[in-house]
Design a protein around this nucleic acid. Structure first.
Length: 504
DNA sequence: TGTGTGTTGACAGG
DNA sequence: CCTGTCAACACACA
């Protein structure tokens, strides 16, 4: 039997570890590798120019790889339910294959496409390969409940057992558009530090996996948010687009770890992949995951609406050099270290500006090369102490935090060259520098660089109280009255006992 | 229902 | 480098 198949690339933009693509190849006479530029995405999400470039580079790389196999990538603009019926008929298609995607829009889209395919008599095959595990099964194994902690998540996946890795492996052509073809403004393109594509992804993976002791000793919290070159792998954009299979990454790490002492989840590189899996699971299980309202696990906070403060943050004009340097790196290069994300996210939300994490989520969605719906929403909830993380009294200092790993402010000077001449004593707080030093540095605060938009000490103390009030009102699954009584009992009884126990 | 724990705080003090 | 304190959270498990 010979068939004509379409393999629909969405994420999973690779040839390696691609079970759905393999399913398309089986017994096929013709296979049509297809990528749709679905207008839903630019119409409903924010895609910055740097991520557009990453996508186009990735598609070119995929096309090149397919050329080596005597094939080409077909790139078509249009919504799936309109495009597919035409293509099914035009190419006489009997089979459609694609990778499972767990995001809300993707699930709705795929359900509709499956219905369209059924009507056209086209068999649909979908395979899991974007995640290590079957995300739905994780929730099932946890009695239908979404695991809410990493520890809980780990115990559930441990029970599921080892993940598997898929074994390795025309006529007219619809070309890959350029950024200009797509009508995009390319004037703000940043340096091309992380070019898209499977070949680049595999090259970078290989490069890092050769550093065996670095891999074995990797502990995420020990890596620096403000080194001049990334202190971590920056494989995240590649995993996000599926240029690199998370499963291939996982098993490469198994090879490197074998027979050696190595770090473990949550801090290890394996642990990082499991964090991704954790947030994919919670994003699948929790309704309205990218919103506060209607999200049953999210603490409801009375965030301020303050467009001036928000744009100062997103445009690197807060007057805190550490924060502004990070936001500059983000905008120019499309990637910042995870702890740098913590620092700016805390600053925007519960730490200083008291602006909703949803606003920060939008900015990251636009600017990060690795912006991923599930991870972005999950991490913003984490950092704003809305869901998953509740120790809201742990606040990052926009002054002190960066000093731990960059005493002299070299990172700040790289991204904010206007502050280059400031002495180390004042680089994190230039407004404290005497006028003479500001003049010598050629940078007057309030004129050449903004004054701080908030007093951190005042703001964070006030915000702590506002968080306390929000938590007092928060009652995810319980009767609020009952909860209030429990809280009272705890605070009057437990604390003195604890202190007494310590004294004796 | 109490207790231990939680990838990644800041700060003072030894 | 480590520790405890600050003031205090929810989740998970026994």
């Amino acid at each position: 039997m010979s068939q004509n198949s379409i393999h629909w690339f969405r994420k999973g933009l690779r040839l390696h570890d691609n079970p759905a693509l393999m399913a398309a190849l089986r017994d096929s006479r013709h296979i049509y590798p297809l990528f749709l530029l679905d207008p839903w995405f630019p119409n409903n999400t924010r895609i910055g120019i740097n991520r557009w470039r990453f996508l186009i580079q990735t598609l070119r790389d995929l096309d090149n790889s397919l050329k080596d196999l005597n094939s080409r990538l077909f790139v078509i603009q249009g919504s799936p339910t309109e495009v597919f019926p035409e293509l099914f008929e035009k190419w006489n298609i009997s089979r459609l294959t694609f990778e499972v995607d767990t995001e809300p829009y993707s699930r709705r889209r795929d359900e509709e496409v499956i219905r369209v395919a059924e009507r056209c008599g086209v068999e649909v095959i979908s395979k899991i390969s974007h995640t290590l595990y079957n995300i739905d099964r994780i929730i099932e194994e946890n009695n239908g409940k979404t695991p809410m902690t990493y520890v809980r998540f780990q115990s559930v996946v441990a029970a599921i057992g080892v993940i598997t890795l898929h074994s390795k492996d025309h006529e007219e052509h619809f070309g890959i558009p350029s950024l200009e073809d797509l009508g995009l403004d390319t004037s703000s393109l940043g340096p091309d530090l992380f070019p898209g594509g499977e070949q680049e992804a595999l090259r970078r993976l290989d490069e890092h996996m050769q550093r065996t002791s670095w891999v074995c000793n990797f502990e995420k919290p020990q890596t620096s948010p403000n080194s001049l070159n990334p202190s971590t792998t920056v494989l995240s954009p590649y995993v996000r687009f599926g240029c690199l299979s998370a499963r291939t990454f996982w098993w490469k790490l198994v090879d490197v770890y074998r027979g050696k002492k190595h770090s473990h989840p949550p801090v290890s590189l394996h642990g990082q992949l499991l964090w991704r899996e954790f947030f994919y699971t919670t994003a699948r299980g929790i309704p309205n995951f990218n919103k506060m309202q209607g999200n049953p696990h999210c603490v409801q906070v009375d965030w301020d609406s303050n467009p001036e403060l928000l744009s100062a943050w997103s445009e690197a004009r807060t007057g805190f050099p550490f924060i502004d340097a990070i936001m500059t790196q983000l905008r120019q290069e499309g990637w910042i270290h995870h702890l740098a994300r913590h620092a700016v996210a805390c600053f925007l939300t519960r730490g200083d500006l008291w602006i909703s994490w949803e606003e920060g989520q939008k900015v990251f969605e636009e600017l990060l090369l690795d912006a991923d719906w599930s991870l972005n929403a999950g991490n913003w909830q984490w950092l704003s102490a809305s869901t998953f993380f509740h120790q809201y009294f742990r606040v990052y200092s926009p002054i002190a935090f960066g000093k731990k790993t960059d005493k002299y402010g070299d990172y700040i000077k790289k991204y904010l060259p206007g502050l280059k001449m400031f002495p180390a004593d004042y680089i994190y707080e230039p407004w404290k520098a005497p006028r003479s030093i500001q003049e010598r540095a050629g940078c007057i605060v309030g004129k050449d660089y903004p004054r701080p938009i908030v007093d951190h000490m005042v703001a964070h103390k006030k915000n702590l109280q506002r968080m306390k009030a929000a938590y007092a009102k928060h009652s995810p699954e319980e009767n609020p009255i009952e909860k209030g009584q429990k809280r009272k009992a705890k605070s009057s009884m437990e604390m003195p006992q604890k202190k007494a126990a310590k004294l004796y």
